[in-house]
Amino acid sequence: MSSSADGAKTASQYIEHHLQNHQACLGPDGWLWSTESNPIACSGNFWAVNVDSMFWTVLLGVTFCALFFKVAKSMTLENPGKLQTFVEVVYDFVATSVRETFHGDSKLIAPLALTIVCWIFLMNLMDLIPVDLIPEIAMLLGIPYMKIVPSTDVNITFGLSLSIFALILFYSLKNKGVGGFIVGELMMNPLNPKELGMPKVFWPFVMAFNFVLELVALLAKPLSLSLRLFGNMYAGELMFILIALLFGSILVSAIGPVYGFIGVILHIAWAIFHILVVTLQAYIFMMLTIVYLSQAHESH
């Protein structure tokens, strides 16, 4: 449990505290920041910024870019070092995935996939840092809220998936044309009135039916992409918070140490399992991006 001086937080307060982003927004009287007395000062304001999510997501993105740029700049043909070998393994993994899955011709897709898998992996990896460590340090620095796992913030995951959705639309329109995409792809599937030999009279109905189905399928892509990542990481984070509650009970009751011991065991088990989730979610996000963009490049 949070070791803040009063020590009087209830379990639900502790959880709520951990799930609250540190926000800032421009109110009528200047900048408004989340405070412990009013954590949701910016609630409902679209122009509010989750400062902690933004900070960590950019920090991790810069970390990825700096690391890979440093290695890429000093790549040697012979005798690659350990770091270069690592980067090459990641490169090769992404390049192979793209080559096997993506059948179009695009110079963007491979670096896009690399950025996605590394960046999301780093974001998810923040989940393995003990839940109280950085928020407590932030508290000492006077920052009341600090969510350090950007992928537990829907804004971040939607930011990624909507960008990819924009690319899907862009490439679909570019490769299939407006008519090819809207009519050919969204209206002539899955029931193709031409192939089914229907009279022309029925075509508009069938096409309207198809359009509704395909539109849902299309919109489900960014939605599922972001919510899958968000849901997995949010649930994982919540599990860590709940397990951390067990540690908090050590000093509270006589049976506390037993809870503490159980907490340690659970934490280790969940953290090990979570390594899988962290990697898997980054991989799934990357693969689905490649698949969706590959579909956007294919013509029927």
């Binding site: 304001n45 910024v49 999510s53």
Partner: peptide, 18 residues
């Protein structure tokens, strides 16, 4: 957990990193 301009910030950051 509401949608706010963090979304836009993330999209911009994503674009820059890519």
């Amino acid at each position: 957990m509401d949608i706010n301009s963090t979304l836009l910030g993330q999209m911009i950051a994503f674009g820059l990193f890519v």
